[in-house]
């Protein structure tokens, strides 16, 4: 902004910049603390005063992926020496890695399965929602639809329903058809709420593509379908990518449906991670490690999306 002239304005400006940096530090502290805790040895995670400087280690991640139990008796020197480096870390922390009695294979914790479930459900529901949403947005953008505003309101309103309200009948219906605790059941629910979002956002993007492009294609002898696939779709790709990232993040972060509709087989990470806190003294380093891995994709996507955030968060109503 131009026009910092008087000393007083200069002073105001400097104070504002200082305040912004202070706010930034406060806002990012919780995220930093998750990251730091994920690399701490367990005994340093809950100290007074808080431990800020420490030698980072990866034992929380080893523990995150393995099933462990309390170490009852110290292993013999020989046993300890022959163990792989990551197993030594667990033993040093006073626990042992649980192995399959017969095969000796290391038993894994539930985390990797939950992470995989999160990926499956989020990716499939995103792809379906963005594809259907783009077609519908094109339909609303280019053709006359009777009561268009009402239909668009109807589409948006399905997104606004509180998850628990929808979950009660869905749970009962899924029970009848056997979709509780399945990937498909969760995918359908996630597709439904992402679909309404995708229609709204994509309509904004498609409205911005000049109609003259298609008109020219139609004059050149393309059919409407060809004009859509060869002219409109390539123009809409950026918008589709941004929409897909938004849908993915929403599905990835979703908690209530996953809590209600899944328990073992199809459970995603968001209901799983809190269930690990339970009673007694939780191992916060492991929870932080699980949280950090879960947050990394979202953090990366947020940076990729930075120029579309405003549009996405306002359902396409406000554009820069």
């Amino acid at each position: 902004m131009a026009g910092v002239r008087t000393p007083r304005e200069k002073w105001t400006n400097r104070t504002a910049i200082a305040a912004v940096f202070l706010a930034l530090i406060i806002m990012l502290t919780p995220i930093y603390w998750i990251t730091a805790t994920a690399f701490k040895p367990r005994n340093l995670a809950t100290t007074i005063p808080p431990t800020v400087f420490f030698t980072p280690e990866v034992s929380p991640f080893v523990k995150l992926f393995t099933k462990r139990s309390q170490l009852r008796e110290q292993p013999t020197q020989e046993e300890y020496e022959s163990a792989p480096w990551w197993e030594k870390m667990v033993v040093d922390g006073g626990e042992k890695v649980v192995r399959n009695r017969k095969t000796g294979e290391v038993r894994s914790s539930g985390y990797s399965d939950r992470f995989k479930n999160s990926l499956i459900v989020s990716i499939i529901s995103t792809v379906v929602a963005v594809c259907m949403g783009t077609l519908t947005a094109y339909g609303f953008s280019r053709f006359k639809v009777k009561g268009e505003d009402d239909w668009m309101f109807f589409i948006l309103s399905t997104r606004m329903l509180p998850p628990v309200v929808v979950a009660i009948p869905m749970f009962l219906m899924y029970r009848v058809v056997g979709l509780n605790d399945t990937h498909l059941g969760l995918i359908i629910l996630y597709t439904a709420f992402n679909l309404s979002f995708a229609v709204w956002i994509m309509k904004g993007f498609i409205d911005e593509i000049p109609k003259e492009y298609e008109e020219a294609a139609l004059v050149d002898g393309y059919t409407r379908m060809q004009a859509f696939f060869k002219v409109v779709l390539p123009e809409a790709l950026t918008g589709m990518a941004a929409t897909a990232v938004f849908c993915f993040i929403t599905a990835w972060n979703e908690y209530a449906f996953a809590l209600i509709m899944t328990n073992r087989n199809a459970q995603t990470a968001p209901p799983y991670i809190p269930s690990q806190v339970g009673s007694g003294l939780p191992d916060w380093t492991v929870i932080a490690a699980g949280t950090l891995l879960f947050l990394i994709p979202v953090a990366i996507f947020t940076f990729l999306l930075r120029n579309h955030l405003l549009r996405g968060m306002s359902f396409g109503a406000i554009r820069k």
């Binding site: 995220i31 972060n253 968001p270 949280t291 879960f294 979202v298």
Partner: peptide, 10 residues
């Protein structure tokens, strides 16, 4: 952009 349930827990 983060999950309310997971980060909230922390």
């Amino acid at each position: 952009m983060l999950s309310m349930a997971v980060v909230g827990l922390f």
